[in-house]
């Protein structure tokens, strides 16, 4: 057992009295600042316990009466109330009226940008540039379902080919290979013809053969010259703008087994005013009609 506590000559501290083969241990106390900080933390915790709900007994909510959920809800409600006069005007107006009124338009563009970043940018890109693989560019003037303010509003509200909204825009392109409507050779020909509509065909003979296939299978939706049909969301094929990329293999694969775009119905997620702001914002990205 340690018995001999002595003063260390160099540091001026007492030793603990322990000794191992001549090695002695200094009994250095904790620095004062550390010790008092520690006590202050304990004191702070006690004050906190009294002020905020910390003991899970009904009624013991702390003297401040603060409850995070209620505070957050109140803060949100307060912000909504503050914005409401403008939101009510944005809700009541049509997107065209908003676009025509400089004050409403400025508000809609600012609010629409935020709502776009949160809800739309994942698919359509931060600047509406779209993404290869079926996510259309919104910053150009090539529209699948129409580019007027009213068209854009309808698309955002009801979405496209989703299962949640009965009024969702919808159309079906057949799986020309999957459903046995065309064989592989015909699909290769018609893919060349589709490329040829915008002067990109690499095999003129195949493109010429594909013209018949196109006339018999595609024109009812895509038009005789591939001009498209916005009533059906049938893309214009003659403009060198591609949803899935311009290479012939991609086009053949799409004709064989199309993967049609799906968009959620944001009318079920967002306020009418927000949808109007989004419509005006998207319309302003560059290509609104």
């Amino acid at each position: 057992m340690p018995t001999k506590i002595e003063k260390d000559a160099i540091s001026g501290q007492n030793t603990t009295g322990h000794e191992w083969d001549g090695l002695k241990e200094l009994n250095t106390p904790l620095p004062r600042w550390w010790l008092y900080t520690f006590y202050a933390c304990i004191l702070f915790a006690l004050v906190w316990m009294v002020m905020y709900p910390s003991i899970p007994i009904r009624g013991l909510t702390g003297v401040t009466g603060y409850i995070a959920r209620e505070a957050g809800t109140a803060e949100l409600a307060e912000a909504r109330t503050r914005a409401e006069p403008m939101m009510a005007r944005l809700r009541a107006a049509t997107p065209a009226q908003i676009a025509a009124d400089p004050e409403l338009r400025a508000y809609a563009i600012a609010g629409g940008r935020v709502a776009f970043a949160n809800n739309c940018a994942a698919c359509h890109g931060a600047g509406g540039q779209g993404a290869t693989g079926g996510y259309p560019t919104l910053a150009d003037d090539d529209w699948l379902w129409g580019g007027t303010l009213a068209d854009i509003r309808t698309t955002i509200t009801h979405g496209i080919r989703n299962q949640d909204d009965d009024e969702a825009r919808t159309s079906v392109m057949p799986r020309f290979l999957g459903d046995g409507m065309l064989n592989r050779a015909q699909i290769q020909d018609v893919a060349q013809h589709v490329l040829g509509l915008s002067g990109l065909a690499t095999d003129q003979a195949a493109a010429a053969r594909g013209a018949t296939v196109f006339a018999e299978n595609c024109v009812s939706c895509h038009g005789e010259q591939g001009e498209g049909n916005q009533e059906l969301g049938a893309p214009r094929l003659s403009d060198r703008i591609w949803l899935n990329g311009p290479d012939v293999r991609t086009i053949e694969a799409f004709i064989s087994n199309p993967r049609l775009g799906v968009m959620p119905a944001f009318g079920q997620r967002l306020d009418g005013a927000t949808i109007n702001m989004l419509a005006v914002y998207v319309h302003s990205l560059g290509g609104g009609r």
Binding site: A122, C123, A131, V262, P264
Partner: peptide, 17 residues
Amino acid sequence: RYSDDWHAQHLRSPRAV
């Protein structure tokens, strides 16, 4: 919030979308 296709494509290659 997003389509099924978006999720599948995003999981396969996030930077593609």
